[in-house]
Each structure stands twice: as C-alpha cells, then as structure tokens.
Amino acid sequence: MAYKPQFYPGSTSVGINRRKHMSGNLEKLRDIPEADVTAIMGHRAPGADYSSTHPPLKEMGEPDCPVRQLVAPTAGAAAGDRVRYSQWTDSMYFAPSTPYWRSYWGAINCKGCDPGTLSGRQIIEARERDIEAYTKAQYDSEMTDVALCSMRGCTVHGHSLRLEENGMQFDMLARTEMGKDGNVYAVKDQVGIPLDKKVNLGKPMTEAEAKKRTTIFRADGVPMCGAVGARKYDEAVEALHHMWELRSKWGFRPE
C-alpha cells in the first residue's frame, strides 16, 4: 500500500481544515488575475522584467554535484530571480488560515520557499516568479477570506483587534475597502502605496462560512478538546499532550 501522509489529528472541523491546509488539497474559491496579484505585491509593475541576482543557471555552468542533478530548480531559481516576499495578516475572528498554517502549507507544498511565522503575520520569501505563483495560490484558495485576511508588507497590526462595523479586518493604512456592491477592493499594494486601479477581490465569506472554514480553535467556535461534555477529548489534544510530554523529557536520561 502506498504511503499516505498524515498531517494533523482530530475529527473536529478545525482539525479537518488544518489537514486540508497542510496537504495543499484546498478548494479554489476565486480567480484573481496574475497581473493584479503582482500589482498588490508591489515588487514589480505587471508586465515588467524580473530583476535578477545571478545569470540563468544554464549559463552559469554549475559544478558537478549529485544533489543538483537530482533536484530540478524552480522556475525562479533557474532564471536567477531576486528573492521577494509576500506577507499575510489573518484576523483572530475566524479567519480561514493562521500564521502557523500558512507556514505549514508553504513548507510542505511550495518548493524553494522560506516561510516565517510570527504571532500576527506570516511571511513567505522565495524567488520572484515562484512567490508570485504561491501568493496567487493563497489568494485564490480557501486559505484566504478577502475581508478577514489581507496582504500587509508593513503596519500589520489588526489581527487581534476587533473587526470594523462592515466585517473587515482593521487596517490602519486602509489597503482594502468594502465597495458599495458588497465586494472587497484592494486599493493599495502591500506597503500602502496606492494602486493605479482598484482590484476587485470578490465577496467576503459570511460569518457562518468563515467559522466553517477556519483553522482556529476558539472557545466560542470549535474548542480544541472537541465536543463540550464528551467522554473523551478529541485526538488533537491527546496528540498535543503526547508531543508536549516527549518535548519536556527530551534528552532526560536518569541513570
């Protein structure tokens, strides 16, 4: 029987969603054009050339190395692109993803990337054409709700604040706005420089939908222990206790 990776324990909806994020088996909810994703990232104008740090690998004449022969370079690495980043902020109010799960998704599913996890934001660095593809994948999939998640290169605070009256995550720099038609528009790039044209990101999730897709355990949503009052805790807690115990005893050898 072929090996099937197991990503996360538990039978709660959050456990199932966490498995989906880690496995990369995500539902596609929207299709934002590549040029618009590039514009929101703000590293280069859509259609402009990629800046590079070294010549394409084919022209460089690489040393004879078994690992290089084994591993095919990503498109960005083969072309010698600069390393760029995209950074996300996800609201604590039932955003579909969280920094840890964006990082798990990146580390498991995206080749040649460097995810960085912080308390309120999550950054992925990779070669420019790779990071553009990874960012588009995040934007288009159920990892992102356009009201509760946004790309913020700086001034990221907002994840732990209350939402605005219209259900948007608070953003000091007003990078996204709720249109009169109920769609969310990106009006600035991730560092707060106005875009030439507004980018329609589509409609946000309803509160019920966000709660259904979230990877956040919360006492007022799905608690980590599973159903309240159940005879047995959810497997996620058992696994956590197990790991915690091993971690605490790590290297401890009473002799």
């Binding site: 290169g153 700086c154 001034t155 608070f170 720099l173 600035k188 420089i193």
Partner: peptide, 12 residues
C-alpha cells in the same frame, strides 16, 4: 487605534 494621515514606515 490611531489613524495616521500618511504611511508611518516601510517602503511606502
């Protein structure tokens, strides 16, 4: 939370 009138830091 504060509402700045211009981007306080970063590339912008």
């Amino acid at each position: 939370p504060n509402l700045p009138r211009s981007v306080p830091y970063g590339p912008g």
